[in-house]
C-alpha cells in the first residue's frame, strides 16, 4: 500500500518526505490537494511548507482544501495521519488535533537542529522509539509555538498525547532548551487514539547521516510500520 504525501499550493517539503519514506522501504506518492478520494492509501503525510501562502493563519485555508475531507475520513477510520511542521498547523486548524501554533516567542524564524525527547510511544509517530530517547532533528518554522486552552492542555498531558518535547542534548527539558516558546516545550502531539500525530521539527530531513543526523528515522519507521497495519477503507479489494 502507498502513502499519500499531500501537496498544497505552497507546500515545499513534499519531496523530502517522499525521499525519506522511500529510504525506509515505503511506497509514497504525491497527491494534489484537490484530490477527494484517499481510500487507496494506507497512510497520509501533510508535509511542511507554506500551504496557500500561510495567508489568514497558518493552515487556515489549507484546512478547507478539497483533500481535507478525505484526510478527516481517513483519520476517523484509524488510518495513520502524520503532519510535519505546516502539516501540524493544518491538523490543528482542521480540529484533528487540539490547540494551535502561533509565532515563535522571539519572533524569529528558527532554522537549526534541535533536540527532542520522546515522551510517549503509543502513537504512529513514536511507536518505534523508546520513552526518553533524545533525537536531533532540524526545526524550521516561524509559527512553531504551540498553545492550547488549559483544559485541552491538561487533557493531552494526562492522556499521554504529548509525543515529543524540546530538550537539550542530555534530554533535559527546560526553558533554555525551548527554541520557540512552545507551551510545556511541546514539539509533537497526537490525538487520543494515537493515529493522528504531528511534529513541528522535520524528521524527514534527518533520515540519513549525510544530512547530519538519521535520528528522524526512529520516528518515520514507526509511521511506516503503522501504515502496514492500517485499516483498509477500500472494500473493492479482491478477496
Amino acid at each position: 500500500m502507498t502513502i499519500a504525501v499531500v501537496v498544497f499550493p505552497g507546500t515545499n517539503c513534499e519531496h523530502d518526505a517522499v525521499h525519506a519514506l522511500t529510504l525506509l522501504g515505503a511506497d509514497a506518492e504525491l497527491v494534489w490537494h484537490r484530490e477527494t478520494d484517499l481510500d487507496d492509501f494506507s497512510g497520509i503525510v501533510l508535509p511542511g511548507g507554506f500551504a496557500h501562502g500561510d495567508y489568514l493563519r497558518t493552515g487556515a485555508i489549507a484546512r478547507f482544501s478539497p483533500v481535507m475531507a478525505a484526510v478527516t475520513e481517513a483519520a476517523d477510520t484509524g488510518k495513520p495521519v502524520l503532519g510535519i511542521c505546516n502539516g501540524f498547523q493544518i491538523l490543528c486548524e482542521a480540529g484533528l488535533l487540539p490547540g494551535a501554533l502561533i509565532a515563535n516567542r522571539d519572533l524569529a524564524f528558527v532554522c537549526k537542529p534541535i533536540h527532542v525527547r520522546v515522551e510517549s510511544t503509543d502513537t504512529i509517530l513514536t511507536s518505534a522509539a523508546t520513552v526518553g530517547d533524545v533525537l536531533r532533528i532540524p526545526l524550521n518554522s516561524y509559527e512553531g509555538n504551540y498553545i492550547a486552552p488549559p483544559q485541552d492542555l491538561a487533557a493531552i498531558e494526562a492522556n499521554g498525547q504529548i509525543t515529543l518535547r524540546y530538550c537539550d542534548e542530555n534530554g533535559d527539558v527546560s526553558d533554555l532548551a525551548n527554541p520557540n516558546g512552545s507551551t510545556n516545550n511541546i514539539a509533537g502531539i497526537s490525538n487520543a487514539r494515537g493515529n493522528v500525530a504531528a511534529v513541528m521539527p522535520h524528521p524527514e530531513r534527518a533520515a540519513e547521516l549525510i544530512l547530519g543526523s538519521d535520528d528522524g528515522r526512529r520516528l518515520l519507521e514507526g509511521f511506516v510500520a503503522a501504515t502496514k497495519t492500517s485499516p483498509q477503507t477500500n472494500s473493492v479489494a479482491a478477496s
Partner: peptide, 8 residues
Amino acid sequence: QLLANPVM
C-alpha cells in the same frame, strides 16, 4: 468557520 480561530 474560517476567519477566526476560537482557540486563540
